[in-house]
Design a binder for these strands. Structure first.
Lengths: 342, 342
DNA sequence: CCGGCGGTTGTGAGCATCCACATTCTGCAA
DNA sequence: TTGCAGAATGTGGATGCTCACAACCGCCGG
């Protein structure tokens, strides 16, 4: 296995010079630079990252923790993060929580601590106090996306505002019989993520002087089939159905649209539908939605994290709570229209 | 930063004993084991993986290379692989090729070589000769999934057989006017991945004594909107449309079904549709399809790779070409029915 | 002609662990 | 009591790189 000494010998310089030359550091003459590069190429030398890590304390590796991979938001954000990190010469180590509590414990208690990552990106993951304490003890910066991380920087869309904006869009079209499909607030958690979009909906309704008809609000998981089932329920009795529905995600909106079609309803003539996400299929479905651009969020989070890592003194790594609200934007397409009497 | 020496001091033993105890090696008395464990817990000690790697040559980390993340097959397989690896105490470093040629070069020429991974899982990626030579020089085992890797072990479904099976299903129902939507053989590559399923279709048609009507074969990318567009084209002239269509992936089949519905055709009464994948939405759509269980493929690939790594002598790592055909199975649902005159 | 300056190069000491080997201990049989 | 086997423990490299520092080089001005 070819090491730095062989390269040094072949190039006729010391190992220190090889190290400097190969990492583009100053204080290397053009001549030495060339000799080293040639020697390295000839021998096919690539520095061992573990030795470099041991010597510098830097791994050039970022840990990404997320609850799912097989979902639109997560896979898009992950792809963007990966590309951005590679661009900056970082590797990305994946920690997926979908394997249950045991897996989560292993990840937080062992894997993230064995000094393998310079920092952590937590996507829609809320570490517990203990988990966070561990990470902080290592002075590893954390940046959250899609959900705030206590005591850390994070980049998140304002879910309440998004729900409100979507609902207001329906209100502005003259709808008053507005339903909602999505995650509802959970009595257990005081202010859990899934319920936030509902609060936005409720707020908009209240400000418009409307009361919420509990029969028009349906809870389901964030999938097409889940929403399809409850939507059919919701729209079956046409005399008593909402004229518009706000879905907490685009995939749910797709399910709602399919249910409406299967019941013979036309969208948007008989029913307006609005979602949240701007999924890559939303344009195809003509879905009006709230765009949240996860790829850009991911890139911004990487930038934030790398900026922190670039700070010279390690104490600055220690996490400062700092939420950055990600802007949301209404995208109007063909699934919403003015209210018209049926 | 607490190291092995602090633990040794607190436990009152040598660093070697700490090392042995914490890794569950033999030759440690129960008493010493306990003292070490207590000391480690008290200090919150976790071994530095870079130092361990430097000393042992083992990284406990697997590199996974894939072309996309944001696609059903890839995200499902990735999630399965990650869980399986974590279970075995391995980390997973992600290398996504979607960032273009430059990114690909960087990954193969630098990242995979800096001794950061013990092995590589290549998902639907065909490394070039040069790329493979690099990896072989490092004696890093590679296992391919979803596409053979020259000179390496791989686990792949037989695409030709899958296409044939799907088409034969339609033939068995009495259809003779059978179209296909999907990737077509490319004149450039002699036997490229996207065309394989077409060959299966062609083979089945030929064996049934039928000729392929070029107007019923449409090429498009592997997405719902892509298939929707060409399907509409295909079905518009009802007098001259196929009575059944084989789609090279389930997502394409969804697009075809939507197009049919929008044209007023009923599936399966007016049109039978069969796909390949058994996507997690296929049950919802009632799609008949060929199941290929990517999660299981992923787990099998991890097992193969870890088995190779467990071999005592490194020469055995050197890659042996060995293709394992993954079994495919027809899953009949509600999108296919007996041919009936329109 | 010499001192000094700026930039280049080499030296040696870490970095935190594991491994082979040497040493010490334990209990039991002779 | 002694010897001995086998297990438990400790010692001293070795791993491959980077960094701080010291030494060196050539050139210019005094």
């Amino acid at each position: 296995m070819v090491g730095i000494e062989e390269v040094a010998a072949l190039a006729g310089v010391s190992t220190a010079t090889v190290s400097r030359a190969l990492r583009g550091k100053d204080h290397v003459s053009a001549k030495a630079q060339k000799k080293v590069e040639d020697a390295a190429a000839e021998l096919g030398y690539v520095a061992s990252s573990s030795a470099a890590t041991l010597a510098t304390g830097r791994t050039q590796n970022i840990g990404v923790v997320l609850p799912y991979i097989d979902r639109w938001f997560f896979s898009v954000i992950l792809e963007a993060i990966e590309t951005e990190l590679i661009d900056h010469g970082y590797d990305l180590t994946l920690y997926n929580l979908s394997g249950g509590e045991k897996q989560r414990k292993k990840i937080f208690d062992e894997l993230l601590l064995r000094k393998r990552v310079d920092g952590v990106l937590a996507i829609a993951v809320n570490p517990t106090e203990a988990e966070l304490a561990n990470l902080n003890r290592m002075h590893k910066p954390i940046v959250g996306i899609g959900g705030p991380v206590k005591g850390a920087r994070s980049i998140t869309m304002d879910d309440v505002a998004a729900g409100k904006l979507a609902t207001e869009h329906l209100l502005s079209l003259g709808h008053t019989r507005i339903g909602m499909i999505g995650g509802l607030p959970n009595a257990d958690e005081e202010f859990g993520q899934p319920g936030l979009r509902y609060y936005g909906y409720a707020e908009a309704m209240k400000e418009a002087g409307l009361t919420i008809n509990e029969n028009w609000v349906a809870e389901c998981d964030f999938t097409i089939p889940g929403a399809y089932v409850v939507a059919k329920q919701l729209f079956t009795d046409l005399r008593n159905a909402p004229s518009a529905v706000f879905c907490a995600s685009d995939e749910m909106a797709f399910g709602a649209i399919m249910a409406a079609k299967d019941l013979g309803l036309e969208v948007p003539k008989d029913l307006s539908v609005v979602g949240i996400d701007d999924h890559n299929l939303s344009e195809f479905y003509g879905l009006s939605t709230i765009s949240q651009k996860p790829a850009e969020q991911g890139r911004a989070a990487v930038k934030t994290l790398l900026d922190i890592l670039a700070l010279p003194n390690a104490e600055d790594h220690d996490n400062v709570e700092e939420k950055k609200e990600w802007p949301v934007k209404l995208v109007v397409r063909a699934s919403t229209a003015k209210f018209a009497k049926r």
